[in-house]
Each structure stands twice: as C-alpha cells, then as structure tokens.
C-alpha cells in the first residue's frame, strides 16, 4: 500500500516535471535526466559495448526526448519512452559504424521470460558473456531478460518480428550457456 502510494507520488512528480520541461524549463528537464540517465546509459552501453558510443547515444537520446517531449503521453511510462528512443539511437549509431548482421530464422521454441542460472555467476562474468553475444541476440536479451520487456515490446522497439525476437533470444540462451558453462533456464 505504502509502495503504491509512493509510486503514485513519483509518477505525479514526474508528470509535473514533464509538463514544466514541455514549457521550456531546462531545470525540470535536468531533473528528469538525472532520474533516468542510469537506465538509459545502461541500455546504450549494453547495446553498443562501447563507453564513448554509449555516452553519445545517451546524449542523443535526451536531446531527441527534449525535441519530442510534446508528443509524450504523460500517462505512459517515461522510462519506457526513453528506452525506445535509446534503442533507436543505438541501432542507428551501430548501423553507421558497422555492417548489420543477418537476422536468424524465426523460432518459437523459446521458454519463458525468467532467465535463471543453474549456478550463481559473478556479475562481471555474465556482463562479459552478454557483451560477447552477436548484436541481434544481445539486443533481444538485454531488452527482454534484463529490462523485462515482453516479446512484442522488445520486437517493436527493435523493429523486428516477434518470432525473430524469440529466435534471437533462443540463440542468446544457447550461446550464454556455452560461454558461462552453466544451464540458463
């Protein structure tokens, strides 16, 4: 109950900041930036695997968000909206910097969303294993398994078919299992 009230207050506070930012208040926008930069940068870093590129993507994400703030519907999640922008920016930067890998065949044979490890593994070891995944598999895994987006949401953000997203997750699971040496369920 207290948690729900706190969340409601947070959302109202955020809506007020969005409204002020829409009116051109940069201090309000800075506050939104400080609240969300970690999640945006975390996503960009995992998608690009390059700290400098991730910083550029984070900057562009907030610049684009500032431009498009008038189109943001305050009843939806600002965090998700920023993530969508961050994914678009990261994909665009990556396309510029290198060839696009081919998409795998669609595959529906993917288990549920909970990605548990048979044996606990050190954070850095998992991060390294995720970072070594092919781009498409990594993108799908980061959005779905780390940030909790559903298959349709992740597919929509990445601009791919849902079946393709599931196939990428299947591939990511197999490769993680091989690299970490533990079962990923």
């Amino acid at each position: 109950m207290a948690h729900a009230q706190a969340e409601e207050t947070r959302v109202e506070w955020e809506s007020a900041l969005v409204q002020r930012a829409r009116d051109g208040d940069r201090r309000a926008f800075e506050r939104l930036y400080r609240d969300h930069v970690g999640r945006v940068y975390g996503l960009c870093l995992r998608m690009t695997r390059d700290a400098q590129l991730a910083e550029d993507c984070t900057q562009d994400t907030f610049i684009n968000a500032w431009r498009a703030l008038g189109q943001f519907a305050t009843r939806s999640s600002l965090s998700t909206w920023l993530h969508r922008i961050a994914v678009n920016v990261s994909l665009a930067k990556r396309r510029k910097s290198g060839p696009v890998e081919p998409l795998p065949e669609e595959d529906d044979g993917v288990p549920g969303a909970e990605w548990t490890l048979e044996t606990p593994v050190e954070v850095q070891e998992i991060e390294d294993a995720i970072g070594a995944l092919p781009e498409g598999a990594r993108d799908a895994l980061v959005l779905h398994a780390l940030y909790g987006y559903s298959h349709p949401e992740a597919a929509h953000m990445l601009g791919i078919a849902e079946g393709t997203c599931k196939a990428q997750l299947h591939r990511a699971r197999r490769l993680l299992r091989e690299r970490l040496g533990v079962e990923v369920n």
């Binding site: 909970e114 490890l117 606990p120 954070v123 998992i126």
Partner: peptide, 8 residues
C-alpha cells in the same frame, strides 16, 4: 554473484 539475469 547472481542467479538470474534480472538481478543484473
């Protein structure tokens, strides 16, 4: 150490 990717 973590036992799930959600814990990252």
């Amino acid at each position: 150490k973590v036992g799930s990717l959600r814990e990252l």
